[in-house]
Design a protein around this nucleic acid. Structure first.
Lengths: 152, 152
DNA sequence: TATTGTTATACTCTATAACTATA
DNA sequence: TATAGTTATAGAGTATAACAATA
């Protein structure tokens, strides 16, 4: 008998997703970061100079939550808040040089994480997996690169 | 250029895993349950009459956390605590008739969840995905059916 | 003295609402 | 009056430690 497996792909996705999140958290903790902070850092790197409101909207998180995240990154000297002279209510958020370096380290950590997680698969199987996962993510309406953990 | 994709399979797994968890939580909320409660209910169905200590060990969660979970299921009349006459410190935990019915509804919800999540894939692609995910889960040392969310 | 289950407590993460300063 | 950012507060969810009953 084949039929639907006892633990289907939906459960495996939830299980592996939680595992992946946990392992990633351990890796970035070595850099002094939390997973939400890394997502924000990437967003700032992609669109430097945006206001906190724009960043919050892009990540799909309440602006209040962003304050603490930005605070943490700023205290570590990874980003800079600069007042916008045209409209002094706004900050423009930028990566510092140290932030750029951290981004490079994050890329390394991400690659190591990717390799560890897919170690059981051949090169061809890895690309098959990636294609299937990307198709599901698109079908389910998930934004590329935006983790649902931010969502309101 | 091919190379490593910007958002690799590790990120897609985390993203899809969080999405799957969220959707599943919405579905079981209709049955008045939380995801951790459904995991416990399944564990009790698989091994009826075990003590809370054994159940906690099986799920990999602190025994103190199990108390609230068991309380919730008991208050809904889905399970029964029965004192063990040989050792009156222990409870033996069983599914009630209503609990059996809820298990059947959970199976239906799980199947609908599975179909929704893999809607973008053909039958053959679904089995390919399942095989690859199961291989990764085994390689990463994940227990079949045990969600890392329980882990200490 | 050890073990099962429980309660009390604290900590983390996040959201909601109220506030300030600028416009 | 409206908007950007902030602070205060409260609510989940979970872990750790202390406790009562039984062995």
């Amino acid at each position: 008998m084949q039929g639907p497996p006892t633990f289907g792909s939906a459960f495996l996705l939830a299980q592996l997703g939680a595992h992946a999140t946990q392992r990633f958290a351990e890796r970035v903790a070595d850099l002094g970061l939390t997973p939400p902070q890394t997502g924000l850092l990437r967003a700032i790197a992609r669109r430097p100079g945006e206001s906190q409101q724009v960043l919050a909207a892009e990540l799909g998180t309440p602006p209040t939550r962003l304050v603490a995240l930005v605070d943490g990154l700023e205290q570590q000297g990874l980003i800079e808040r600069r007042r916008n002279p045209q409209d002094r209510r706004l900050y423009a958020v930028f990566l510092s040089d140290k932030g750029q370096e951290t981004m490079a380290e994050l890329a390394k950590a991400g690659a190591a994480h990717e390799n560890e997680l897919t170690a059981a698969l051949s090169t061809e199987e890895r690309s098959t997996l990636h294609e299937l996962l990307a198709r599901i993510a698109a079908d389910r309406g998930l934004m590329p690169g935006v983790h649902p953990g931010y969502r309101t």
